[in-house]
């Protein structure tokens, strides 16, 4: 049961990764790609980490720290990239 939950979460994360990374190849705006990257890199990676947490509960403090820093840093990086790339476009 535990194995099943953990592998389901990890595969969900991998699907998110693939779906969110494919738009990088297209010709959309930076902001649009940022939306799909936040699906893949924040939510997908969080799903993978939770899957690992279910599978290997002994390493909980390391994985928990990874979860928190994923959520905070990736989100803030998305905001900073959006802010900076737009500032550049406005002047350029």
């Amino acid at each position: 049961m535990k194995e099943f939950i953990s592998y389901t979460l990890i595969s969900l994360g991998l699907v998110f990764w693939l779906w969110g990374t494919l738009p990088l190849l297209g010709k959309r705006s930076v902001l649009f790609k940022l939306h799909s990257l936040s699906v893949s890199d924040t939510l997908g990676s969080m799903a993978i980490t939770v899957g690992l947490l279910v599978h290997f509960p002994a390493d909980w403090s390391l994985l928990f720290l990874a979860l928190i820093s994923l959520a905070i840093w990736n989100t803030i990086l998305g905001y900073v990239l959006a802010f900076c790339s737009r500032g550049g476009q406005k002047d350029g």
């Binding site: 930076v30 890199d41 990676s45």
Partner: peptide, 18 residues
């Protein structure tokens, strides 16, 4: 384009650390 590259690098950084 430098911003598209930044996006790609940001993605690489997260994926490799996971």
């Amino acid at each position: 384009d430098v911003w598209q590259r930044m996006l790609a690098f940001c993605s690489i950084a997260t994926k490799t650390s996971i």
